[in-house]
Amino acid sequence: MTEYVYVRPQPGGRVRMPDRNFMPMDAKGATVPRIDYYERLIITKDLEVCDPPAEEPEPVIEEASPVADSGPMPVEESQLTPRAPRSTKEK
């Protein structure tokens, strides 16, 4: 089973993550697997092992008050699309 560790790059450093399509690591850091690639970067001090940042609480979104149902909205005569009259065929 693979172990994981939280690391962040040195200030001004840029580390690519091969396990994430070689995207650069965010300055805040990331949780990465303990594979040789990251272990070498930790040994050379390009990455530092640190504690993950505290999770920020999600903002509380107030629910909108329900609107009283007042039935269908009124439609003005000018908003209606005229239809062609039906043809009446007698057989």
Rank of each mutant, 00 (worst) to 15 (best):
T2W: 00
E3S: 00
R8F: 07
Q10P: 05
Q10D: 09
P11N: 10
G12L: 00
G13A: 05
R16L: 15
R16E: 14
R16F: 15
R16A: 11
R16P: 06
M17A: 07
M17R: 03
P18I: 04
D19A: 08
D19L: 11
F22R: 03
M23R: 14
P24L: 15
P24M: 14
P24F: 14
P24I: 15
P24H: 06
D26S: 06
A27I: 07
A30C: 05
T31C: 09
T31H: 08
R34Q: 06
I35P: 03
I35M: 03
D36Y: 07
D36N: 05
Y38D: 04
Y38W: 01
Y38G: 01
E39S: 06
R40P: 06
L41F: 08
T44H: 11
K45Y: 12
D46C: 03
L47D: 00
L47W: 03
C50Y: 00
C50K: 11
D51W: 02
P52E: 15
A54F: 00
A54I: 09
A54G: 01
E55V: 10
E56V: 11
E56C: 02
P59S: 03
P59R: 11
V60R: 04
I61G: 00
E62N: 09
E62Q: 06
E63C: 13
E63D: 15
E63G: 07
A64H: 05
S65M: 11
V67P: 14
A68F: 10
S70A: 05
S70Y: 02
G71M: 13
G71D: 02
P72C: 08
M73C: 10
P74S: 08
V75T: 11
V75E: 15
E76C: 12
E76R: 07
S78K: 08
Q79N: 03
Q79W: 12
L80R: 11
L80Y: 02
T81I: 15
P82K: 14
P82G: 09
R83L: 14
R83Y: 13
R83M: 10
R83E: 14
P85G: 10
P85E: 12
R86M: 15
R86G: 07
S87V: 10
S87C: 12
S87L: 13
T88R: 05
T88L: 11
T88S: 07
